[in-house]
Each structure stands twice: as structure tokens, then as C-alpha cells.
Design a protein around this nucleic acid. Structure first.
Lengths: 196, 196
DNA sequence: GAGAAAAACTAATAAGTGTTAGTTTTGCAA
DNA sequence: TTGCAAAACTAACACTTATTAGTTTTTCTC
């Protein structure tokens, strides 16, 4: 009889969520079965239900954890008394860090939120809309203060968020691109462009 | 007994593929069932098999159709004797147009290619890698010719492709952003940045 | 209108799904 | 060592899945 291994700093539920994020990332939420998840944990599927309520609960935990982290960070950034450009730069760098430190969870939140049941789906979308709104406000303020060129703020936010999200395609081991280069070059590209 | 309606310019198989793209987009490939697809077409599920070979075949048709369109376009762009910047601009604008004219298919190709069975999965990834390689070459040439700032070409391509892909989040009916503004502002953002 | 081909149907299959019930084993506290 | 709770197990259920077989209906061609 196998047992779910709990590392020092995590409950069994936490271990399950982490494995679920890994599995949902590689196979997608719907295609990943509880039996597969159990096997990855060295256990039979029904045993999982001693620790969790349902498969859906795992997705919820992942999505809201990620959503809240991003929301918390942008709230802190907003109240930080620096130039708007510096704030936007901070947001971009935070996205890149999140992508590197919590890749599985961020990936799943980005790709599988569709499978959240109501009312969680609506809640999640509200969180995301709130985040986008915050960033849009930031860009608008930047334009007013003449730190940013006159452009459509919605399009600017769309461009920025899409670009940072795309880091999921980054191949960590492409030896000639370090994290620092990735961060610096992307920030530079999004703020200053690539044309002279 | 219902029948699959074929519009003037499409076989029944084509109609099925289109509906499949719409369904796979909204529910994801795995979560969408053949029974749902059949119902959307006003028919019973087994009837579909008079026109198609399998569910997987539908995904293949969608993914490769999209992949080939993008590949064809970048090949044409490469051989077009204009400045590198103009080529990159053309690529960006083509992505936006594709997103608007073939939204369902592009979305599905971007999100559901993971569920392609081998050897189609490898084929698809090769097509995508080839596309990225072409664009990277373009950026490198631009740097050599001093049209583009010195930056990591891989990061630049990642930023550009991610940004244009993100148009899938664009809300068509956000009344204050026309397609023209979206296109122009995004091109401008990616080439010239948003900072003065 | 007759015959053939296309395309719909119903019925069924084998496999896989999340989850529950009930039972046994494990590990800790006394 | 005993007793209890946590957590594993096996067996099973009620559904859903893509797909096949076999049959009937529709549509096209002559």
C-alpha cells in the first residue's frame, strides 16, 4: 500500500494540487483522469477523495491561487509611488517571474479556466477583468502624464498581457537565452519597440 | 430525419469541420462530444461517419489547414523585395486578419494541437518550428541591416507571436476599438514601443 | 417510375469517466 | 499494547465516450 509523500512544507492536499497542475498542463483538464493523477502519486484513485472533494475543486484551487497572486501584486504596484512606466515594467517582470516559479499553475489557470463550473467561472472572469482594468488605468494615466505615447490603452494592454503570457512557449534550455535576457529584452521591446 | 445543410461553396465534410471548429473552440476538443457536434448539425452522431473518418481527423484538418496558411504566407512575404520591417509588419497584419476571418480554426489550432495523435503531432510542431525559424531569420536580417535594434531575435519573435496570438482575447464588439485601430496600434506598439 | 448510391437512422459495444460505499490497513496517542 | 482516526484499499455504480453493424430512408440518375 503506497502513500502520498508529503514534503516538509506541504499538506497532502497541497501535494495533490501540485501534481494535478502538472498533469492538467500536459494533458489538459478534461483529458486528465483521476486514475492518472492517482497513479502519478502512487495511489489508487478513490484514495484521493480522503483529501479532496472533487476533480473540479483541484482546478478551482489552481485558478484562484494564480488569480489572487496577480491581483495582489498589481494592487501593491499601483500604490507604489513611482513613475507609471516603472509600474508597467514591474508588472511585466512579475509576469515573467510567475511564469518561471509557478509555471504549471499559471499555465493551467491560463488554459483551463473554461472548465470551471459556475459560479466559479464568473468569479474567475471577474478577477481577470479587474486585473485588466487596473492595467488599463495605468496605461491611461501614463498617457495623461505624457510618459506614454498616445495610443489605444485597451490595445496596449492586450499587447502587453499577450506577450508576457506567451512566455509559456519559452524553452528554458535554449542555452543562449538566460532569464535575464528574456526579461530585459521583452521589457525593452514592449516599452521601446524594436525599430530605431 | 434531418439533413446536414451544405451551403453553396462547401461539401458536407467542410460543413462538419466548420462546426467542429466552433464547438472545439467553445468546449475544447476533449470535452466536446461527437453527439454534441451531431446535434449542432441537426443529425445523429453515427451519421457523421458517412462523411468523416474519426473525431481526430477533424482536429487534424483544422490544425493543418491553419498551419499551412501561415506557412504559405510567410514564404510569400520572404520573397517579397521590401524592407525587413515591412515584412514583419505584413506578418503581423496577416495574423490579425487570420484571427478575424478564421477565428475558430486559428483558435483551435492554437489551443488543441496537443491532442493530435502521432505522427501528426510531430508534423504540426515541425510546421510551427519552421514558421518561427522563418520569422527569426527575418529579425536577424533586420538587425544585420541595421533596420532593427540589437536585441535577442528569439525573444523578439516570441514577443511578436505571443502578442498577435493574444488577439483571440479581443472583444470584437468593444465599440471603441475598430479592427483598423487594433491593427495599426499593435503594429506600432510592437515596432516602435509605447514610450516616447 | 425503377434502380442505385448516398446518407440518414437505431441498436449496440467496449472502454473509460468521476465518484461512493464499505472494508482493511496504517500510524500515532494513551 | 490497545484503541482510534487517518488514509489506504477493492468493488461497484451510473454515465458518457467514440465508433461499428445493420437497416431504412432519401436523393440522384436514367
Amino acid at each position: 500500500m503506497a502513500k502520498i509523500l508529503t514534503s516538509k512544507n506541504g499538506t497532502k492536499k497541497e501535494v495533490i494540487i501540485q501534481k494535478a497542475a502538472l498533469l492538467f498542463k500536459s494533458k489538459s483538464y478534461t483529458a486528465a483522469s483521476m486514475r492518472e493523477l492517482a497513479e502519478a502519486l502512487g495511489v489508487e484513485a478513490p484514495s484521493l477523495y480522503n483529501h479532496i472533494g472533487s476533480k473540479s475543486e483541484l482546478l478551482q484551487a489552481i485558478c484562484f491561487r494564480v488569480g489572487n497572486k496577480f491581483t495582489l501584486q498589481i494592487e501593491m504596484t499601483k500604490s507604489n509611488p513611482v513613475a507609471v512606466i516603472a509600474k508597467i515594467e514591474a508588472v511585466i517582470r512579475f509576469h515573467i517571474q510567475m511564469m518561471l516559479e509557478n509555471f504549471d499553475e499559471v499555465y493551467v489557470a491560463n488554459h483551463e479556466w473554461k472548465h470551471l463550473p459556475e459560479p466559479f467561472l464568473s468569479d474567475f472572469l471577474n478577477i481577470r477583468r479587474g486585473y485588466e482594468k487596473s492595467l488599463t488605468d495605468l496605461v491611461e494615466t501614463g498617457i495623461e502624464k505624457n510618459e506614454i505615447k498616445k495610443t489605444n490603452p485597451y490595445v496596449a494592454v492586450l499587447t502587453i498581457l499577450s506577450a508576457v503570457r506567451g512566455i509559456e512557449f519559452w524553452q528554458r534550455n535554449k542555452k543562449n537565452v538566460s532569464q535575464q535576457v528574456l526579461e530585459d529584452d521583452m521589457v525593452n521591446h514592449l516599452l521601446n519597440g524594436i525599430v530605431w
